[in-house]
Design a protein around this nucleic acid. Structure first.
Length: 464
RNA sequence: UCCUCCUUAGCUCAGUCGGUUAGAGCAUCUGACUGUUAAUCAGAGGGUCCCAGGUUCAAGUCCUGGAGGGGGAGCCA
């Protein structure tokens, strides 16, 4: 057998030729009769299978028995015009080698459909399903498109730290990082933990955001983005939260809130367009199997402007809404899921960018408006998944920023390096965070965030 | 973390008022079929009824506690 093998994605585009080619992959199904067997082979290069036609008389019974759902094989043969419906070409097998048998009595994946809940329990095998093949290829394509978009637009990829000594990021509970012996933790006289002998000589955690360090990069490189893992130790049990997820955070010097909105909208539309143009087969499958409106919804989003309005305008609309809300609507209240959904799904029926939130419900670093009440925050709200992006113009004034830090009781000494950017050549700047898995939820039409990441980490679940 | 629903064959589920030997479809296996498309047809095998207690002559079914999962909410991306 020759060593070079073709990807099935390529083979399916070939015209029938007289030369033999070699393919390698995993068997999805085998069916047929005494004379001929049809093996559907998938190698992950595409959602589509290559049909391998096996003349039973040309192969030993022992070999044919080993070709079962899940088995890994190599097949060599000629590509011919298919006599059956459903595919234009197929392989007439001349030689087959079985790399790995797969006992059908115990292999959990069957020819029939499985629930997503069951597949989560076998996350080591679910990449072999049509659904997760499609999701993982889509995930790759979106990752690539993110880097391409930023690279093509003059952004630099900045690697912000995963282990952070800063506990002032204020974006939720953090996972501690320590090498201290948990059975014998050194204590100070006041019973607090003494971190002097810990690896870093201080308390450290996994990052909840690369933003603060991202701002440092933007103050030198002009436009940066981060794209890395992010960790939140919140006990969140929802279809929209993970303890370990990937986040994209652009940060741009000389951007104001309007530029930030333009960037967010253009970026999201670029990514969705990229998916439609490069992942057609996978999206068609997801559209057919999970969400019949998926492709129409993706097209709608790229063809229409996002609705932009201020928090204050949003509150007015909600106050006039002919709908009872569980949570009261008033100026100063944080918007609940039901409020966001009303604006996006009922009132405007399109993505919404809300800006200028009350300062008391937003983070310390956001630029304060002249009204003294609001800050230049920006949330991008999408149908079905809610908040997909959260960002803001940043407060560039040293005086205003330190005053806000003091008001909130954050120790300035913990943020000395961040505050110095406002002391030394400060500049207006803005940025946002995009949850990568939330983007994938939207682009794939999946309903649960655990189904758009290969190995989800959630409370009480770190298997695989 | 709160509310709510669920857990029975490999998978998806049914199981009446607490009653005698726990069922179906699919999957698997065996057989049939000269080109199938989640092939079809016939037959067979397959059960810790989530776990631990309790009530009862009798528990898959009722009660208590626990574990795991789904949906909703909060936190957020």
């Amino acid at each position: 057998m020759k060593n070079e093998h073709f990807k099935i994605k390529e083979v399916l585009t070939l015209q029938p030729v007289d030369t033999e080619i070699l393919v390698k992959g995993w068997v999805r199904t085998k069916r047929g009769n005494k004379n001929v067997a049809f093996v559907a082979l998938n190698d992950g290069s595409t959602i589509n299978n290559l049909q391998i036609v096996v003349e039973v008389s040309n192969f030993s019974e022992d070999l044919l028995k080993k070709i079962t759902t899940g088995a890994c094989i190599a097949a060599q043969g000629k590509i011919v015009k298919s006599m059956g419906q459903g595919q234009s070409v197929e392989m007439q097998a001349l030689e087959i080698e079985v790399y790995g048998e797969c006992d059908p009595e115990v292999y959990p994946l069957q020819k029939k459909g499985h629930t997503l809940e069951f597949l989560r329990e076998i996350a080591h095998l679910r990449p072999r399903t049509n659904t997760f093949g499609a999701i993982l290829r889509l995930r790759h394509a979106m990752s690539f498109a993110i880097h391409k978009y930023f690279n093509d637009n003059g952004f630099f990829y900045l690697h912000t730290p995963i282990i952070t000594g800063s506990d002032a990021e204020g974006a939720g509970a953090m996972f501690q990082v320590t090498t201290l012996d948990l059975k014998n933790i050194p204590l100070n006289p006041d019973k607090s933990v003494n971190y002097e002998d810990d690896f870093f000589g201080k308390s450290t955690n996994l990052t909840v955001s690369g933003q603060l360090e991202g701002e440092l990069g933007a103050m030198a490189l002009g436009a940066i983005y981060t794209f890395g893992p992010t960790f939140r130790a919140e006990n969140s049990n929802t279809p929209r939260h993970l303890a370990e997820f990937w986040m994209i955070e652009p940060e741009v010097a000389f951007y104001e809130i309007k530029d930030n909105m333009d960037l967010a909208e253009d970026f999201l539309k670029y990514l969705i367009t990229y998916a439609l143009e490069n992942c057609e087969d996978d999206l068609k499958f997801l559209n057919e199997m999970y969400d019949k409106e998926l492709i129409d919804r993706l097209k709608f989003v790229i063809e229409n402007d996002f609705q932009r309005l201020t928090y204050t305008e949003g509150i007015k609309i909600l106050e006039k809404a002919d709908q009872k809300f569980e949570f009261p609507v008033f100026w100063g209240a944080d918007l609940q899921s039901e409020h966001e959904r009303y604006l996006v799904e009922k009132h405007f029926k399109r993505p919404v960018i809300l800006t200028d939130y009350p300062k008391d419900i937003k983070a310390f670093y956001m630029k304060q408006n002249d009204d003294g009440k609001t800050v230049r925050a920006m949330d991008v709200l999408f149908p079905k998944i809610g908040e997909i992006i959260g960002g803001s113009q940043r407060e560039e004034s040293y005086e205003k920023l330190t005053q806000r830090v003091d008001e909130l009781g954050i120790p300035q000494k913990d943020l000395w390096w961040y505050l110095e950017t406002r002391k030394f050549g400060t500049a207006p700047h803005a940025g946002f965070g995009l949850g990568f898995e939330r983007l994938l939820l939207f682009v794939s039409g999946m309903a649960n965030i655990r189904d758009v990441i290969p190995f989800p980490r959630t409370p009480k679940n770190a298997e695989f």
